[in-house]
């Protein structure tokens, strides 16, 4: 579903990604771990199409199409979803309005009928139940004044409503206490299916106790330096990133 080949990217003049290769198939959950500054968030944002990052070489193939030149909305319409590390506050736009506009934009791009507000409310009611999402938050401005946990839950709600094919989660665990983390993870696990792929980016192994990955990759210095099964996450947690850095350094 997602094939990243030899991806190089920079922000302003600074190279961040230096040749990333990664394949995610439907139904798989891939975790990307790595120390601060390794390029994890850059990778997430580039997949979603943020224009501050420039792809200088390589390709990102999603469902058979190179998406590097696509706008963020085209990627979303194709089925890519980025759960933000820092969800953006948008004063003056109600959460309900936003969610409906997003869903209808995606439906429209697929030639599906747009949902009127009544049908939409029916849909959203069902979705918020499973996420322990306070219905009052629907009428508030998008993320404005939300707690860290509420913001992340709002990301998962959007994911549940938009039903993407590929979910990229950028440090979803950051700023969450253990209860909030569990709720968010439950929301994600409920969305796991054989047709949907996940790319879970995290600094800590903790999240992966709740969202159990099929594959774990370690990103360092803009490259994936080690890949393995879920046990690799535990090893990273136990030994830290330092030993790997040294091991790579020695091998070079």
């Amino acid at each position: 579903m997602l094939h990243i080949k030899n991806l190089h990217a920079r922000v302003e003049e600074k190279p961040i990604l230096k040749g990333v290769d990664l394949t995610v198939n439907p139904g798989e959950v891939h975790a990307i771990m790595g120390p601060n500054g390794s390029g994890k968030s850059t990778l997430a944002n580039i997949i979603a199409g943020r224009s501050d990052y420039e792809v200088t070489a390589g390709s990102i193939d999603f469902q058979g199409e190179d998406i590097v030149e696509m706008s963020p909305e085209e990627r979303a319409q194709a089925g890519i979803f980025l759960a933000f590390q820092y969800p953006v506050e948008i004063p003056g736009v109600s959460n309900t309005y936003f969610l409906r506009a997003a869903l209808n934009a995606i439906r429209k791009s697929r030639g599906e009928e747009e949902l009127d507000s009544l049908k939409f409310l029916g849909l959203i009611k069902e979705k918020i139940k499973s996420l322990e999402f306070d219905a009052a938050m629907l009428n508030r401005s998008v993320n404005e004044g939300f707690s860290g946990g509420e913001k992340k839950r709002n990301e998962i709600l959007q994911m549940a409503v938009l039903e993407p094919k590929l979910c990229v989660m950028d440090e979803t665990d950051s700023g969450l206490d253990i209860d909030a983390l569990r709720v968010v993870a439950d929301g994600v696990n409920a969305l796991r299916s054989s047709e949907r792929g996940f790319l879970v980016i995290t600094h800590y192994q903790r999240l992966l106790n709740y969202i159990v990955p099929d594959y774990v990759h370690v990103l360092m210095g803009g490259q994936i330096v080690k890949s393995g099964g879920k046990e690799l996450a535990l090893e990273m947690e136990e030994r830290g990133y330092g030993w790997l850095e040294e091991a790579i350094g020695a091998g070079r």
Partner: peptide, 22 residues
């Protein structure tokens, strides 16, 4: 905010109008 709205599938023009209105 513009990128956030676009990343949810809302076209650039529409996102811009929405933000200006808001």
């Amino acid at each position: 905010p513009q990128f956030y709205l676009q990343s949810r599938g809302i076209p650039k023009d529409e996102a811009e109008s929405l933000l200006i209105y808001a």
